[in-house]
Design a protein around this nucleic acid. Structure first.
Length: 887
RNA sequence: GGGCGGUUAACUCAGUGGUGAGAGUGCCAUCUUCACACGGUGGAAGUCCGCGGUUCAAAUCCGCGACCGCCUACCA
């Protein structure tokens, strides 16, 4: 196999599936429960089991995979814990829809049968997203895959619930909550999405009970007036001073309701009088509690008006709004209607307008938990990266409100609370109770509600590792090393995991939280199905290959920035993959079986390009390592891209071609081949975390490699290979070659024409250096002859360039266009002069000389000297050209 | 109402006090050179949003303003 030549173009499809199964078969993703190696762990943000892989997942998972592969190669015992969450409302919706297609309502089936159907659904479709993650190359420990509804995780949920209840941190109460009339369940505050909406402000007059005028209130939701139980005014409002003890008559309902005084009411909004519907508005609810008002529900759980709505009973709430307006008009109670923009809450699962609703629900008292979570970040036990998110985190944590955790659906963790039918005793227990502990009655009824999905997700970092048991896994891998996630679930998930982790493990759930950007479309819009601007990751993978896609995501992953993804960009990185492929293909034709010759520590035997590339390899290794350690994925990707394409391919391979093409095997040639194999091997290993498939494919063709590249060591800096001198000399040679190429390009000399050039320098050592490496220049600048000498007579009809202390002449009698050369030189001189004058000005500034650090001043001095020198040389040459032109 | 971020080449974006401000794509010219035309070589292209300030020195720090995006919030 190793002797096979690689195909001319890289074909990702077949390669990807082949290696992925290989990795799985070899158990290369598996973490060890116990190990002498240091641990590194990440829990995946569990995608919604009903979900399909979108760009956000792809980005998120790619970053995690890069870190996991990187750490494994560095010798860590890595656990990347995968899984999905049961997504209560979303999953229930999906299955209900399926049933609806057969004309079945879940209530006909009953709870137990319905849940069976959900599990069937999960069995059939639940692993779709997992398979998609695999196509991304995700190296999760799949044998440990978890689901929030698993037995173990459910056990954890009960344990947490019971303990929080016993400590008074979970309570049940009749409060106003956000209600989705379509999903027919309560929602947490976070699950309501607010959107600005063009509505109306209706001014309605409520007549005073004892005759004599009326109070006018303003509302955006006139239908709620049917449940009004007061109107409120500000106690400091002069206009309403004499209303103490007054009552008004609620129009349409003919109910007498009091006027109350409450500071909440803004005097300068509307009329300064506010209608109070405690059962359908959160603020009204608070006011109602303060003033002990009656709370009348007029809207039912299905969004229709109930029996308390009088003649409007049975109407849909929006239909009712129109009817109420019409009725008010008829009674001449509608004073005016204004256009008004206000924000309206929608269900985050189905977009239905949320109805604030009074109902009996379970809540978590979050304040005490939040304090711990705040402290953990303040004290640095958990770092949020980039730290700009700290503020957002603190703001939210500090203003947190109790969390409504009960949901009126069937799919989820049913609340472990039972009521004894005989004595009404409440039993809260981790195990299903057999009988009432108080009266021994057997007639126990479990609370029908289930818990918010995020309640179980909040336990994810430890419930997946076996908690509440004291598992070896927890011992090895908790706290996890880092959590990688998008800011959109910072509150939903990260904050709650922090609270629960601290509460139940006594330790933060993760050392670092890396918040990455959101992937948007090319216009910067959030990708969404309804906007139709999604780019499907699977389409991208099919089109460009997983590696190209992953590299693009990494290259784009600058901290604190949104990612605007476009296909063009992916296309660009596909070319990079192809470039790597071909460079490897080329290299492999010249690498034989490993020579067995170790790379000697003393590099003085090696050629200049060899020493140079080894030194550069050190630098890129250092950069990539430092960048990955700091979650600067884009910098790591950029550094290695630059190195592979512009140093390894453009210069190194071009330099060594003549050596490789030598007919005989010389020591020199062997040494070069050896360096080539070392560098290629290092490149593959540096790149593997980013582009796992193509690197694995090439790795197996590399003579001397054995086993998967996943098990290879990540490159380390080899200090003996750092060679500043080689870098300096190579730069000089490259400068010389670029100088010739530049002249060729500007004066239009075809590459087919071999040139005779003259290189001058007053510095003997420089001349010697060039002499020593003349072959490289002759080859890459396509020269026929190169004369190396001390400054002498200026040649006629030559183009010239100045590179450092070198002056380069390309004499081309008859070929060179004098006018062209004149133009070229003038342009060059003008550019230099502009820059020079800046430097001169800087240096003539007393303050600069006095205050700037010595090395900055010295740098400026030397720049001034080189620039002036260069300008003078070019000027002299220009004069010569002008003289020739005029002769 | 509060908060955060952005504005750098035609496009998409790097770049947190000292360089002649970079990359990829695109554009122009040129080359069927034996790894790669998904390539090579060269080139054109920027008032670093505006104004003011700090500093010897500002794309970078500070202030104000404009425009764009996002998050959060109980003024009906």
């Amino acid at each position: 196999m190793t002797s096979d030549l690689l195909n001319k173009g890289y074909e990702p499809k077949e390669v990807e599936s082949r290696w992925y199964s290989f990795w799985q078969k070899e158990h290369l993703f598996a973490a060890e429960e116990k190990s002498n190696s240091p641990s590194y762990s990440i829990v995946i943000p569990p995608p919604n089991v009903t979900g399909v892989l979108h760009m956000g997942h792809a980005h998120n998972n790619t970053l995690q995979d890069i870190l996991c592969r990187y750490k494994r190669m560095q010798g860590y015992n890595v656990l990347w814990m995968p899984g999905t969450d049961h997504a209560g409302i979303a999953t229930q919706n999906v299955v209900e829809k399926q049933l609806a297609a057969d004309g079945i309502d879940r209530h006909e089936l009953g709870r137990a049968r319905f849940l069976e159907r959900v599990w069937e659904w999960r069995k059939e479709y639940g692993s779709a997203i997992i398979n998609q993650q695999k196509r991304l190359g995700a190296s999760c420990d799949w044998e440990r895959e978890r689901f929030t509804m698993d037995e173990g995780l459910s056990k954890a949920v009960r344990k947490v619930f019971v303990q929080l209840y016993n400590e008074g941190l979970i309570y049940r109460g009749n409060y106003i909550i956000n209600w989705c009339p379509r999903c027919r369940t309560a929602l947490a505050d976070l699950e309501v999405e607010h959107e600005d909406h063009d509505g109306h402000l209706y001014h309605i007059s409520y007549p005073f009970e004892n005759g004599g005028g009326s109070a006018v209130v303003a509302t955006t939701r006139p239908e709620t007036m049917l449940g009004d139980t007061a109107i409120a005014v500000n106690p400091n409002d002069e206009r309403y001073r004499d209303l103490k003890g007054a009552k008004v008559i609620l129009p349409l309902m003919d109910r007498t309701i009091p006027v109350v005084f409450d500071k909440y009411v803004e005097m300068d909004f509307g009329t300064g009088a506010l209608k109070i519907t405690p059962a359908h508005d959160i603020n009204d609810f608070e006011i109602g509690r303060r003033h002990d008002l009656e709370m009348i529900k007029v809207i039912d759980d299905d969004g229709k008006m109930n029996e308390n709505a009088g003649k409007f009973a049975g109407m849909d709430r929006f239909e009712c709004r129109e009817a109420v307006i019409k009725a008010l008009k008829a009674e001449r109670r509608l004073v005016k209607i204004e256009g008004y923009q206000h924000s309206v809450g929608h269900c985050y699962r189905c977009r239905t307008t949320v109805e604030p609703n009074l109902s009996m629900q379970w809540f978590v008292r979050v304040k005490p938990l939040a304090e711990q979570a705040i402290d953990a970040v303040k004290s640095g036990r958990t770092r949020i990266i980039p730290e700009t998110w700290n503020k957002t985190y603190f703001d939210w944590m500090e203003n947190i409100r109790d969390w409504c955790i009960s949901r009126q659906i069937w799919w989820g963790h049913q609340i472990p609370v039972w009521t004894c039918e005989s004595c009404n005793e409440i039993i809260v227990s981790t195990e299903n109770p057999e009988s009432c502990p108080k009266c021994k009655g057997k007639d126990l009824v479990q609370d029908t509600d289930v818990l918010d999905t995020w309640f179980s997700s909040a336990l994810w970092p430890f419930s997946t590792m076996g908690w509440p048991d004291k598992s070896p896994l927890l011992n090895s891998f908790y706290p996890t090393s880092v959590l990688i996630t998008g800011f959109d679930i910072l509150f939903f998930w990260v904050a709650r995991m922090m609270m629960m982790g601290l509460k139940f493990m006594g330790e933060v759930p993760f050392r670092d939280v890396y918040i990455h950007a959101l992937v948007r479309d090319a216009e910067g819009k959030k990708m969404s199905k309804s906007k139709g601007n999604v780019i499907d990751p699977l389409y991208v993978i099919d089109q460009y290959g997983t590696d190209a896609f992953r590299f693009t995501l990494a290259a784009f992953a600058a901290q604190g920035r949104d990612i605007r993804l476009s296909e063009e960009r992916i296309e660009g990185y596909r070319r990079f993959i192809n470039k790597l492929w071909n460079a490897s293909r080329f290299s492999l034709t010249h690498l034989k079986e490993p020579s067995g010759m170790p790379l000697s520590a003393d590099c003085s035997d090696y050629s200049l390009p060899d020493r140079w590339i080894l030194s550069r390899l050190n630098r890129v290794t250092e950069k990539v390592t430092a960048a990955l350690d700091d979650y600067r994925f884009n910098e790591a990707a950029g550094a290695i891209y630059q190195f592979v394409w512009h140093e390894f391919c453009d210069w190194y391979l071009e330099c060594i071609k003549p050596i490789l093409y030598l007919r005989d095997d010389t020591t020199h040639k062997d040494a070069t081949r050896h360096v080539l194999s070392v560098v290629l091997s290092s490149i593959l290993r540096l790149l593997h975390p980013f582009i796992p498939f193509v690197t694995e494919e090439i790795w197996h063709k590399l003579p001397g490699s054995s086993g998967s590249i996943m098990k290879a060591d990540f490159p380390k800096v080899v200090h003996d290979h750092s060679d500043a001198e080689a870098e300096r000399v190579m730069e000089l040679i490259m400068g010389l070659i670029n100088g010739v190429r530049n002249i060729r390009g500007e004066v239009n000399i075809p590459p087919s024409r071999f040139l005779k050039i003259i290189v001058e320098s007053p510095d003997k050592a420089t001349l010697d250096t060039i002499e020593k490496h003349r072959d490289i220049a002759i080859n890459l600048a396509r020269l026929e002859e190169m004369t190396i000498r001390a400054p002498g007579t200026r040649p006629d009809s030559a183009a010239a360039a100045v590179i450092g202390s070198l002056t380069l002449y390309v004499p081309l009698k008859g070929i060179i266009d004098l006018e062209e050369e004149e133009r070229r030189l003038s342009k060059e001189i003008a550019k230099i002069e502009k820059e020079l004058s800046k430097t001169v000005k800087k240096l003539s500034n007393e303050s600069f000389l006095k205050k700037a650090p010595q090395d900055v001043v010295e740098k400026a001095e030397s720049k001034k000297k080189t620039m002036a020198d260069k300008r003078d040389k070019l000027k002299k040459h220009l004069e010569k050209i002008e003289a020739l032109k005029n002769s």
